[in-house]
Structures are given as structure tokens and as C-alpha cells.
Design a protein around this nucleic acid. Sequence first.
RNA 1: GCCCGGGUGGCGGAAUGGCAGACGCGGUGGAUUCAAAAUCCACUGUCCGAGAGGGCGUGCGGGUUCGAGUCCCGCCCCGGGCACCA
Length: 834
Amino acid sequence: MARAYDVIETEKKWQRRWREEGTYEVDADDPRPPWYVLSMYPYPSGAAHMGHVRNYTFGDLLVRHRTMLGYAVLSPFGFDSFGLPAENAAIKTGTHPRIFTDARIDELKESITSLGAVYDWRREVRSHDPEYIKWNQVIFTRFLEAGLAYRANAPVNWCPGCKTVLANEQVLADGTCERSGDVVDKRDLEQWFLGITRYADELLDGLDGLAWPERVKTMQRNWIGRSEGAEFDLVVEGRDGADGGERLALRVFTTRPDTSFGMTYCVLAPEHPLVGALTTPDQADAVADLVARARASSDVERLSQSGDAGLEKRGAFTGSRVINPFTGTPVPVYVADYVLMGYGTGAIMAVPAEDTRDWDFAQVHGLPIVRTVQPPEGWDETGGPGGTPGGAYTGTGVKINSAWLDGMEIAEAKEAATAWLEEQGRGERTVNYRLRDWLVSRQRFWGCPIPVVYCPIDGIVAVPEDQLPVVAPDDVEFLPTGESPLAVHDGFRNTTCPTCGGPATRETDTMDTFVDSSWYFLRFTDPWTPDAPFDKEIAAHWMPVDQYIGGVEHAILHLLYARFFTKALADLGLAPDGLREPFANLFTQGMIRMNGTKMSKSKGNLVAPTDYLTTVGADALRLFHLFVGPPADDVDWSEQTDSVIDGCARFLDRVWRLAVPEEARNGEDTSTPEADLEIRRATHRLIDRVSRDYERWSYNTAVAACMEFVNTLAPYVRDGGRAEVIDEAVDTLLLLLAPMTPHVAAEAWERRHGDEVHARSWPTAEADLLVEETVTMVVQVNGKVRDRLEVAPGITEDDAAAAALATESVVAALAGGEPKRVIARPPKLVNVVV
RNA sequence: GCCCGGGUGGCGGAAUGGCAGACGCGGUGGAUUCAAAAUCCACUGUCCGAGAGGGCGUGCGGGUUCGAGUCCCGCCCCGGGCACCA
């Protein structure tokens, strides 16, 4: 496609200029009001992909727009440079991950630069940089001191593909690893955890004040999964201690203490410690069988077994009974794998009438059902889907069969039942969370080493700050087994205890890379302070991030961890006091899809941005991403996409030709004052419209408005418009385009004025030019458009109605009769009802 | 199963309860050209009609309203998230 100007040279020129002049380098002492915009820092996987392009286009637009509005805009960039791909490459090719990673970073930087995105590169961070490692480790040791980092034995998720343990957040709902797709095993291992659950309530409550997409907040709420209820003891029949023997009781958790009168059995998780004690000899075989089967099957298999047959095999009677404290009646105790050891107490009271899982289980095992909530009329006959019998009733209603709770509503009964348990000393109200502490240790090489030494005398000892960073040695061998080279590197492993000086061994696990990304936005505010991860005062100047931009895929993982870190760092005195949330506004952009699936390397359906950056250029590609639809929506990359991008390039050519005409206009102003005024009005309407569209992230309509304006302006210019009017129009257009298509705007502006468009102020619309002289008023008869009239914008209701009634179509419709009703909404419309 | 989004021309999409389809892509016709590219102009929801014009039309069925793509009720379909969490 032949272009109106040398796109590639122009873009290179300005990219060089922005970098050399340091236009977008800002410091905390800048007198302008601060504004912090951040795109999620990327894992460096080589040249930028379309998702990056989309992300950084929005970010860069904000940087430039806010700068023109007079803010000191902090726009840093860095790389989330630890991670498994580099290590896998090392295993395959023998290249050290650092060499591999640094090369990928260079490629990515190159393509970001050629997109025309501008950053304060002085602030660049790389998580594998020894400086960053050091502060990461300092933070870890501070967590350790505060008890926020601890070692514990727990059943953990082991990914055989990645040869490492994973956090709960990294295991997908189907039990597979979010990275490799392998089915995750459960193993009992001693691992490092961070105490995120200590902040569960604050993480939940803090969401209310955030200007984040509701969807993301909901996902976090669900993930934290707070549920209020009660815990209480169920004394085992014959083991109440009255005979001088040991009292034995089973503790259960429920969110529905009001249904306790309907408990007809209870259930232990197969892993529950009391399974052995409660199983009678005659049931031992059946229970042992069930426990063995549960242990052997993964979570996925457990989930996949459904239906009655599955349920029958998946539960066994222990032979013991416990006493329902509310009724004094004994109920049987079962072991079943539908109860999870990891949640609540690992044991439940079962109320089949009001819980669907208990209902199903009770049906199969022939257990009694007692309703404690009055279901609606006909529930047992037709309350189910498609008029089938209803089954468990979980809705609202009045309590029945529940002695002193009868007649209460559920909420009231919950409260009463809980209060009773507390009075009786049998239990208390509790809150349970789905959220678990964050498992951060990884059996990998390419990550931040956990700075801890194990000493036979002093136990777990943190490496003192003056000995940090602990960095991995370079003389390592990457084994095809995937085992971390650190674990078998004697020089690294064997060390001395920092406390007693005796022989000791190092921790060889590294940290989850999500640790690195949990505070990098704070580091960006001040990556230079020598004695702290960042200066608190300076961080306070910029934080919180005013606008954070990234993909929804981080809705839980990164965004939850970063919120946790911000709170914890503030509490430890490292982050500014009172900084409770890192990201004031969050924007999650849509995915790039191709034929309905996510565009990704693994799917082999990548479209390389480089192909466009070196042909149509960055401006046209950026314009496409802005124009294609609402930023939050997914983009479907189709056969037509290339023509749309060409269309964007075509538009920029038209702008260029208007702004930098090949031959000077011949000086003849042949336009009328009316036409001049119309163009001036259109110019100021455009400022108004585009400015408002920028504020509401409606870039597609902002672009459309600019295109429409060019369509209006071009004939005026061609037919001999007035030079001052044209200049005002063209200059305005260039200013409004400057954040979207910075290169062409900068070059055209420089040719016209000699200075830089991005250093100019954002234009403001003149109010009196926004008022129209006449507007089109629609005349409807019975809601159907029958006529259009040009009227003054300030026309009165009476005048509007009179004008409408005088039109031919209304006169014809009335046929001499009187209108039933006339609705006048001046100056937009009059509707005559006949 | 539960919780969010979303269904508008051939396509991407636009529309504070007030002219549905802005803008762009694609398509058709034309100007320019030896020819093409590029550029420019006109038309382009659908049906009826030679035309003027008119009927229909925003997933489906109801409702509120002078007036509904927009609000309410009940469904259908698509996308995403969560899911033995007691």
C-alpha cells in the first residue's frame, strides 16, 4: 500500500527522539500533580505479541493524554523475568536461563519501543536482577520475623510436569496445572507458606472501595470464600466421659446451625484423624476400603464420579453414633469422600432435607430425612426442574420440626441456634474461608532463592541482611530429569550457620514468581534507594497506582497477592503507612481471539505484531486496536482484520494530506461565513466529544468522531475554505490524535509549527461554539417518524407543538379531527397521538 | 447447578427511554488513468414499489410507556468465572 508519508522513517525518528530527550522521565519533586499509570509487567517471552500491543497501546495513550492534561505521569516498565520457560529452555539447550532471558528481554524491549510506547526507562526492574533478588529476600526475612512466612507440612499440589509444588491458585478447577496442563498430585510435603489468610477479612472488605471491574471483585470474593457459621461438638455415643473414660467428640462446622434438628447422620472426610477411633471392628473392612480408594484417586477422579452408584461406593458406615445436642438423639457416623479434610473441621452434620449433597447421599444409603424448613406448596411433587419432585429445599421459609426454633425465619433461627450452642458451652460461632495460606516454595532453579539456612543447632535461620542477596551459582548443570540443579549443588547447599558458625545447609527451594510481582509497582516508585526496597516517602507520593491495566487472567492470582503484599508491607513498616490498596483503578482489557479461541503460542495461532510494525507502522496498528471495539471486549482476529488495519492507515494518510499539503493552497478563500462557522463548530464539538470519550475509555467512538470530522473537513478544504479555519481544525485534530497515533501527530505538528505536539496542552472546547443555531426536530404520529423540522434549540414546548401540528403529514393524519394527545419534547421531538 | 458478561446489517461495532445501524471493513456503480495502483464521488438492513413512498426490523414471548435495542417479568442461545467449601 503506497503511503502519503514515509511511515517507517518517521516512526523511528520519533521513537529515538522520545528516548533521547527523556520526555517521559519524571521525578517525585516534579511540581505537577502526580499520576501513576502502569501496565502489568510482562514475562519476557520474546518479541511482543498482540495482547501486549493492545495492553501497551492503552497504557501509552493514557501516559500521553495525562501529560497533555498537565500531570507528572509516572510510567515505568520492567520484566517479570523469573520463570519456568527459561529453565525448560536451559534443560533442552544447555543455555543458562539468564542468557536466554536477557536475550528475550532485549527482543521485547525492541518491539515495545517500535510500538512508540514511552516509559521512564531509568526505572526498569528485572526480577532476576541481584538488586531485586536482594530486596525480595529482605522482604521474605521480614515476613519470617513477623511470622507471616512459615514452614509447614501439608498435603500440597505437586505438578509432575513442572516438577514442583503449586499454590492452590495455580491449580485449575479440573485439577490440572494452569501452566503445563498436567494432572496435579497430592503429596504430603514440608513447604514454605505466606500467611495471606491473616488478611482474609481485609482483602474481602477492601474490595468494596476499589474502582475495579465488578467481575474481578466477584472472582476475588468467591476465591476468599468467607462463610459464617458455627462449630460444635457431637459427643460419641457411650463416650461422654461419664463412665470415667475419655470423652470423645466430633467437631463439625456448619453455615446452617438452624437446621440442626434435621441432622440425621454425620460424615467424616476419609483423611479425618478420628476415622480409626470411630470405626467398629465389623465395619473396619468397608471403611478401610473406602479410605484406601479415596487416597488413591485424585481430586479429579473424585469429582468425576457422579450419580447414585458412585455415591454408594463413596461412603461407608463407621459403626459409631454421635448424639445430636439439639435433640439428644444418636445418629450414625459415615465416612465419605464428598467431605473434604481441607475445609472447616473435615466433618459435617448432614441435613439431607436442606442440603442437596446430603439428600443424594441419604437417598442411596437409606437414611432418614427430616425437614426443618417449610418448603413451598407442592415442593415434594413438582418443586424440581421440569415439575419433578423437589428434593432438598435450600430456599427461604419458616422453621418446622425444630422445637423452640419453630416459626422463626432462617436468619433468626440461625442466630438463636448459635446463641444456644454458646450458652451451653457446646460450640461457638466461627468464620471459615476458602482461601488457604499461599504456598510459595518451588523446587526450581530459575527463581529467587529463599534466603534461609538450616542449622542442626539453631534450626531455621534467616540469612542476615548484610549477606543478601543469596544468588544461585552459575556452574550448574540442568538435568533432563527436571530436578532443580540447586538441590544437588554441594557448593551452594553446604554453608555455615550465620548464628553459630557451624556447618549448615541452605534452603534450595526458590520463591513462586508471583512473589516478585507482588511489590514491583512499589519498587518502580524509587528503584534507587540503597538501604531499602524503596523509599517510603517517595512511594507515598506516587502510590496507589492511579490506573492499572492488564488481562483478566490475573484477576485472582497476581491481583490478590499484590493486595496482600501491600497491606503486609505497610504493617511491617516497609510501605507507606495507611497504604492499604495498591491499585485504585483497574482496567482489564479483552483477549485477542482467533476463530473463537485465545490467541497463544501453544495454540499456534499467533499473529506477529512485527509484521505490522514494519509495514503499516505502529500508528495504524495502535489505531486499529483502539478502533476495533470497546477496550474491555475481546477482539476476534479474522480474515477481514487486515483490511480494517489498512483502513486505519488510509485514515492517517488523509490526516497527513490535510496537515501537510503537497502544494500550498492557492490562497483563494471562497467559502461563506456560514460554512466557516460550521467547521469551527464541528472542530469544537470534536474536542468536546473526544475529550469525553477519552474519560470513559470509549476510544472506538473517539476514533470514529475523528474520522467523521475528516469527512466533514476534507470537502471544505477542497472547495477553498478559509486558512485560519482550516488551521484551527487541523491543529485540533492533531492534538486529539497525539495520544493515539503519536508519530504521525508529532511529525505533522513539527512540520507545521516546529515544536512538539506532546508538549502542548490538551485543547478545550469553546462553550459558545458548542451551542447549535438550529437542530433537527422529529415529528412523530403515533410514535412513527413522519417529518423533520429545523428549529431553534431553545424552542418552547408550545411553539414546537404548533410547528408539528402545522406539518403536512400531521394535518393529513388528523384528517380535520383533534389529536388525542401531543407530547412535545423540545427541541428533539414532538409526538402526535391521533 | 450457582454467579457475572453478551445476543443489533454480509462483518467489527454506534445509539442520557425519543430519527436504529454513527464510524469502519466488505460490496456495487461511477470519475480519474493508455492501463493499473493510489485517490475521489454516489449507493449499500430487509420486503413491496418503475418512482414518490410505504410495510417489517435490535435472540424469543409477555408487560410498562405517547414512545423500548435501552426499563420490568418469563424463556432460549453464546462466552467467561466458580463448583462436593458443609
